[in-house]
Design a protein around this nucleic acid. Structure first.
Lengths: 112, 112
DNA sequence: TACTGATGTCATCATGCGCTGACACGTTAC
DNA sequence: GTAACGTGTCAGCGCATGATGACATCAGTA
């Protein structure tokens, strides 16, 4: 049984993940990284965004826990973190599943 | 084989869904609606937000295609749209699955 | 060693987002 | 019919977000 603090932390984590994905450039980056690990310069080419902007977005994604980065000489490789992507998928799946139950059984709270 | 236009529409739809969920109040509303259909007044009570703010958020969720609303006398019931939640879940699942492949096979693009 | 290249940090700015409150409109209760 | 209630729209405001460019730092090359 989750306490209120644990629930809040988990909820805030969900918001952070979703915010991270809610920007077009960042979502594009995540789609690209879902196919292969890439350097910043690859992401700059693929997205068409300025290098500094890509760097800012990657910072955001890292802070949200979705991406990890690793220096490789003068280059930096970025990849998605599977466990974070999994947990996000779990949340969304639970919402989608619950939505079906609510609809099929027409669950609703009575009006006051 | 999707054309570029179809891809863009689909991508924009993803961004719209994610933006809809990326606000704390809206995510809270979605969690609540995943449990049961609710009136605006219920959502006002549960979220603690102003009625007009809840109304604004519901407009946003409807425009994103995640929620549908239906008048019920002086009340309005809101519910999540299962097909939209499903499609969102699919997108996130695909990203999570692909992430595992990239990691287990260490797929990466060579540096320039 | 000097120069080039990749990348991240910092500061700044314009725009858009989220919140608020007045108000209009439809429904319900008396 | 009138008043109360529920809700959505509109307009306005303050702040956060996303983009930009200068610059610093580190790695690679000649």
């Amino acid at each position: 049984m989750m306490t209120s603090v644990e629930t809040d932390i988990h909820f805030d984590q969900q918001v952070a993940w979703l915010r991270a994905l809610a920007d077009p450039v960042r979502l594009k980056i995540v789609h690209l990284l879902a196919a292969e690990a890439l350097c910043t310069c690859h992401l700059v080419d693929e997205t068409g965004a300025r290098q500094t902007n890509v760097s800012n977005h990657l910072r955001f994604l890292r802070d949200a826990g979705l991406v990890e980065s690793e220096p490789h000489g003068r280059y930096t490789y970025h990849r998605l973190r599977p466990e974070a992507m999994n947990r996000l998928a779990q949340v969304v799946n639970q919402l989608a599943d619950a939505t079906h139950v609510v609809q099929s059984q027409n669950v609703r709270r009575p009006c006051p």
